[in-house]
Amino acid sequence: MNAVEVRGLTKVFHDEARGEIRAVDGVDFHCRPGEIFGLLGANGAGKTTTLRMLATILTPTAGEATVMGHDLLRQPEAVRRCLGFYSASTALYPRLTARETLAFFARINGLDSQLVKARVEELVARFGLADYADARVEKLSQGMKQKVSIARTVAHDPPVLVFDEPTVGLDVLNALEMQRTIAEFRAEGKAIIFSTHIMSEAERLCDRIAVIHRGRILACDNLAGLRQLTGQHYLEDIFVALVGG
């Protein structure tokens, strides 16, 4: 069974002066448990909009999608309960401590309140937060914040994880750490949707890659398939060949 199913997802924005803008235009894809599915595209290609629709932050104009069998439009809460969403723009509450943050997100995502405490300790241990678990988030360094952020994304142990350009603004070590963590999640059997505009990252991490451009998916396959389709070897060349830049 697919953890995530997306069919014909479309998003049209209305601009007061310019009229309609089709940010996402009939996107189809799916993602299985234990798989990393990559959305590769330039800035403004529609990656973030697609993922935001998947996280039910935005309402699709057309199309449908299910997450663990829950319909995007009809059961948004259930969808969000089995989904962890991470992006550079999902910030943390600066005035909560790391522990409070994790407890808050576990509880708000419907984790049984008796289990919350144990889960928080588990996360603190797993992500090595013990030393600063009781300091306010605003006092933490960038790398520490990133760890807390990932921990809060999986606080309720969701089967589906969405990472929207997670390595933007991170240094090499932190970015590698992020990639390692994501790979670990795959090993645990989570379905992972991952968007990036960095080719090497997609190449290294993704089981299947969809190249998205101007709101449309131009191709969607594993690396070998994409190579075959375009006759190019490196992902950068594949991308350019598809986009027609």
Binding site: I57, R81, S89, T90, A91, R152
Partner: peptide, 14 residues
């Protein structure tokens, strides 16, 4: 402004 609203909206809270 701080970006925490988006975080909150991705949780299962209605």
């Amino acid at each position: 402004e701080r970006g925490t609203l988006e975080t909150l909206l991705t949780t299962s809270a209605g």
